[in-house]
């Protein structure tokens, strides 16, 4: 057992941090250091370094307050395509663009069958949930067909697939409107779906812990400089202890996150619902505490505390609410599963 970040994680962290200091379009800049191809499946031309590496990328994006949802959506979609049963030869050009960061992929209906209908000839009609903003080159869609949902693959075409830019709780987002979009069935087994979803949850958890770390740092800087009654706020135990708790708890959750990623990389079946639930709750608590400690300044529309409050609200429920995730986690907790 070795609970220190490994050299690959440290190098990747440094590389991502360097990219985050540059100007220019972030996805394309990340592509220069091999993100997302570093972590994409080998079958699709990636290096498949695994989630232990991928969580580093997402944590640093979170810390930089650059959620870059299109990166995780692309990784999620590629995991869905990672099957011998899915022909991808015709997607070579799109895959190349995904790895260059000029286009990205999305998964529609990740939280349950979307309101997308399949009409004769495999044509899709309906609207997606809010999705990250960006140039969408590939859609993996769960349709309402058959009750439980059926997965289909769509290469968006301008005439039948419209991308609208929307504002989602103050965060830039997009919505796809399918107007007879051509699609092909995507054979996704339950096991394959669970595997892809587990990885997506771990990436999202990493992002949330990164965001939480950043807003705690922002709050920490604030309470060290803001004085009241002649002394810095941090000298009040009620203030210092709240931040100390968030810092320490984050250390624990980060270890749980790393363990979960490590287990997934070894094809174990860790409780990914639980790790996303704790990351979501931790980020929510961190953002709310930071806003409280900033006082009225935190309520200003463009303050960092307010921006993060919005960001966490969106990202902490994107793949399920903590309440739902805990219920799911309960069903896979080792104590309550039949084989234990």
């Amino acid at each position: 057992m070795d609970l220190r970040p490994d050299p690959l994680q440290q190098r990747l962290r440094d590389a991502v941090d360097t990219v985050l200091t540059r100007t220019g379009e972030l996805s394309a800049q990340l592509a220069t250091i091999g993100v997302p191809s570093l972590n994409a499946p080998e079958r699709l031309g990636g290096l498949a370094l695994g989630l232990s590496a991928d969580i580093v990328v997402n944590e640093r994006l979170g810390y930089a307050l650059e959620p870059l949802g299109c990166y995780r959506e692309t990784a999620f979609a590629l995991d869905m395509l990672d099957s011998d049963d899915v022909p991808t030869e015709h997607l070579a050009e799109i895959l190349a663009d995904l790895y260059k960061g000029t286009r990205h992929a999305v998964v529609v209906g990740a939280r349950g069958p979307a309101g997308i209908q399949v009409k004769p000839g495999g044509r899709l009609w309906g609207e997606s949930e809010p999705l990250p903003r960006g140039a969408i080159g590939l859609c993996v869609v769960r349709t309402a067909h058959g009750g439980g949902g059926e997965w289909r693959l769509v290469v968006p075409e301008p005439g039948t697939c419209v991308t609208e830019s929307i504002d989602h709780f103050g965060m830039p987002a997009s919505r796809l409107r399918f107007e007879g979009a051509a699609s092909q069935p995507l054979p996704v087994t339950a096991a394959h779906w669970e595997c892809a979803l587990a990885a997506a949850r771990v990436r999202q958890a990493a992002l949330l812990l990164g965001i939480a770390d950043r807003i705690v740092d922002v709050a920490r800087a604030h309470v060290n400089t803001r004085t009241q009654s002649g002394k810095p706020l941090v000298e009040r135990q009620t203030v210092a202890h709240r931040l100390a708790l968030l810092i320490g708890e984050a250390d624990g959750w980060r270890l749980v996150l790393n363990k979960t990623a490590w287990e997934l990389d070894r094809d174990d079946h860790p409780n990914t619902a639980a790790v996303l639930a704790v990351a979501g709750e931790h980020a929510q608590l961190a953002s709310r505490t930071a806003l409280q400690l900033h006082g009225v300044r935190g309520m200003l529309a463009h303050s960092t505390a307010a921006s993060v409050y919005r960001m966490v609200a969106v990202e902490s429920v994107r793949l399920g609410t903590p309440t739902d995730l805990w219920l799911e986690a309960a069903s896979t907790t080792r104590h309550l599963t039949p084989d234990t």
């Binding site: 250390d251 639930a277 704790v278 805990w326 986690a329 309960a330 907790t333 309550l336």
Partner: peptide, 20 residues
Amino acid sequence: RAELARHETRITASKLLSCQ
């Protein structure tokens, strides 16, 4: 059951912090 899952996850974090 959800509370049990919470405690299970938290005690895992405790173990890892202790191991660290």
